[in-house]
């Protein structure tokens, strides 16, 4: 277990500062108008704002359009398999708590094939940011219903409309034991997106952020109203949550919501007439898996001593 095995990296004179260019990877290959572009921009802005060393930052993703994001950020990236980003991120963080870990998942990744990991990662409450880029559809595999597709919305697999009510990821996360940070934002409001990412990054624990996100190809109509009519948006504001004063002029509806109020958060998370954005719940006092027990690393000599002692107990 190497808390900070980077002691040697910071040689003399390492007082680097990082600019946007330090985080920019190759040009993204998402469709024009895809919400992933805005998320990428906000993420890169966050890295600059927080001055995260690129070599000590890891983006972990699963499979799907959004899971390509790590390729476009110049940090370390782990583009793994469908639905399993969270276990990988858990392993990274367990072995290397010194790394900043971001998990990028789509709605299929997080709420369908990897749903079990999502619940348990919430409960582990390890210090990482988990982004659910929710476009309400399977995009990469070309238009299949996802758990978050609204009821009645057609796709290639349910052509006359999705059969069931959509899964509400906020409710599910808020219902899970030991949840410590649950927020929702929208990629078409960059200031809110950035502020939410920053709050998530600064929160110590598992920061779950659902980002509402257009798929221009398959679910554009679902987000049109939210994008065009500020009236359907309702901001949750609080000093302990996200407050973007500049948005007050555009978005008239806001609720003062204390993120420590879990019952309130659960009520607000229910589907309603308006799209609610902001921090629903935040409690830093929840147990964090990686903090519960930590021994310092032992040197080889110490380990051998311990092993010899242990062998002695089995000696014949």
């Amino acid at each position: 277990m190497n808390e900070l095995c980077s002691l040697a990296v910071y040689g003399a004179g390492d007082d680097r500062s990082f600019a946007l260019g330090d985080y920019e990877g190759p040009l993204p290959r998402w469709c024009p108008g895809c919400g992933d572009h805005s998320v990428l921009a906000a993420v890169q802005r966050l890295l600059v704002a927080e001055q995260l060393a690129p070599e000590r930052t890891v983006f972990v993703s699963g499979i799907g359009c959004s899971s390509r994001l790590p390729h476009y950020v110049r940090t370390y990236g782990f583009h793994g398999i469908h639905g399993r980003a969270l276990p990988v991120a858990t392993g990274i963080k367990l072995h290397r708590p010194d790394l900043s870990v971001f998990v990028v998942m789509g709605d299929g990744d997080c709420t369908s094939i990897g749903a079990g990991h999502w619940l348990h990662a919430t409960r582990y409450n390890m210090d990482m940011v988990a982004l659910l880029l929710d476009n309400n559809i399977y995009g990469l595999t070309k238009n299949q219903t996802s758990p978050t597709t609204p009821q009645g919305y057609p796709s290639n697999t349910q052509p006359r409309g999705s059969y069931l009510p959509a899964l509400n990821p906020l409710e599910a996360t808020l219902g899970m034991t030991n949840a410590s940070f649950v927020a929702q934002t929208a990629e078409w409001i960059p200031a809110h997106l950035f502020a939410t990412l920053q709050a998530a990054h600064r929160h110590r624990g598992f920061s779950f952020v659902r980002v509402l996100q257009r798929c221009p190809k398959y679910t554009a109509p679902l987000f049109e109203e939210g994008m065009r009519k500020p009236d359907v948006i309702e901001l949750l504001v609080h000093d302990d949550g996200v407050t973007v004063p500049a948005l007050a002029g555009v978005y008239k509806h806001s609720i003062h919501h204390d993120p420590l109020d879990l019952d309130g958060a659960r009520r607000l998370a229910e589907e309603g007439d308006r799209i609610r954005l902001g921090v629903f719940f935040r409690d830093e006092s929840r147990s964090r898996y990686e903090d519960i027990r930590r021994l310092r690393s032992f040197t080889a000599e110490e380990k051998i001593d311990l092993l010899e002692g242990e062998l002695e107990r089995h000696a014949v």
């Binding site: 782990f78 276990p87 072995h95």
Partner: peptide, 22 residues
């Protein structure tokens, strides 16, 4: 760390994530 994962798949994923980083 002995990590008792939520399932067999996660156990593999955690080991792989850890191996990747250390």
């Amino acid at each position: 760390v002995l990590h008792q994962a939520e399932d067999e798949i996660a156990a593999a994923g955690v080991a792989i994530g850890a191996s990747y980083a250390g």
